[in-house]
Computed example of a mutant assay.
Amino acid sequence: MYMIMRAAALLLAGFLSFGTQLDAAAPEAEHGQLTHAPEDSWTMPSAVVLIDAGHGGIDGGATSGSTLEKDINLAVAQKLYLLLNSQGIPAVLNRNGDYALSDDNRWHISRSRHKRDLSQRRQLTDEIETTMLVSLHVNWTKNSSKFGPLVLHQSSGESALLAFCIQDTLNRQQQTAFYPREGKPFYLLRKVDQPAVIVEMGFISHEGDRTMLTNPREQLRVANAIALGIRQYKWITR
């Protein structure tokens, strides 16, 4: 009798354990109905700042010898991304490697790679929920004596304020005294709805600027100045 009762107890315990595993594996139920994940539960990332790393891939941008603008833009963009996120300002990068955004554009039917590149950058400002666009670039001119940062902005007051904040912090970092300018002919500044600026971080055609922009430690200082300008803008507009 004892052996029969013990076997029955073990069988019951095994049954209860099996039932518990089934409950754990089954979807949660409410009022007898199985719950399902909503069909629109996936979303694009959202952030405060969309960092546009200019050029990339086949598009090297401005050059000086073997120095390519696209590499400088990406290096500073990656540092800016890490700085902003570490400071509690969510940011996203539109490229994190050496590739052309025109290659991702399958919707804009155009033979012009340049047009596909720009339209893809602009489209991302619609797809990704952000409050501002900061596009990083490096300047070039035949006059090798020209140097220093320049921030271009839209006609809107918010964009102009963002440009003034970033220009001020870059001026202090590079010991210059330049003013931002409205960039009327630039596609992104005309087409993007959010406050947007193009940050020309220096001149690749100027030896001093080029040395600064290719030095990882100095790139971090440039990125920190831009991050400080963004924080100042956010403090003023809070």
Rank of each mutant, 00 (worst) to 15 (best):
T20S: 10
P27E: 09
I51Q: 08
G202A: 06
L136T: 05
D40N: 15
E127L: 15
P38Y: 08
A29R: 15
K146S: 13
S66R: 03
F178S: 01
W107K: 10
V49R: 04
I226F: 00
R6Y: 03
E207T: 14
S41K: 11
I128P: 07
L228W: 01
P195D: 07
E129G: 06
Q232P: 04
A225D: 02
Y2V: 11
Y233L: 08
T237D: 06
A227Y: 03
E129I: 05
E39V: 15
A7Q: 07
E30M: 10
F186D: 01
S17M: 12
R210N: 11
P216F: 09
Q173C: 08
R238N: 12
Y233R: 00
S41T: 06
L12W: 02
R95S: 09
I4K: 14
S64H: 13
V138G: 02
H153E: 02
H55M: 04
R95W: 03
R231N: 12
Y179F: 02
H206S: 11
V199R: 01
G157V: 12
P149R: 10
W42H: 08
A47L: 00
V92Q: 03
D168E: 13
R95Q: 12
L80H: 01
P195H: 09
I166V: 15
Q33L: 14
I236F: 11
G208C: 05
Q167A: 04
F186E: 01
Q123D: 14
G208I: 00
Q175W: 08
R122F: 07
C165S: 13
K184M: 07
D71P: 02
M44E: 07
G61H: 03
S41Q: 11
I4N: 11
D98S: 05
A225I: 03
M5D: 09
Q87F: 08
S155F: 08
N96S: 15
T141W: 05
V134A: 06
L11Y: 00
D52V: 02
K70A: 12
A75Q: 01
V92R: 14
S144G: 04
Q194Y: 04
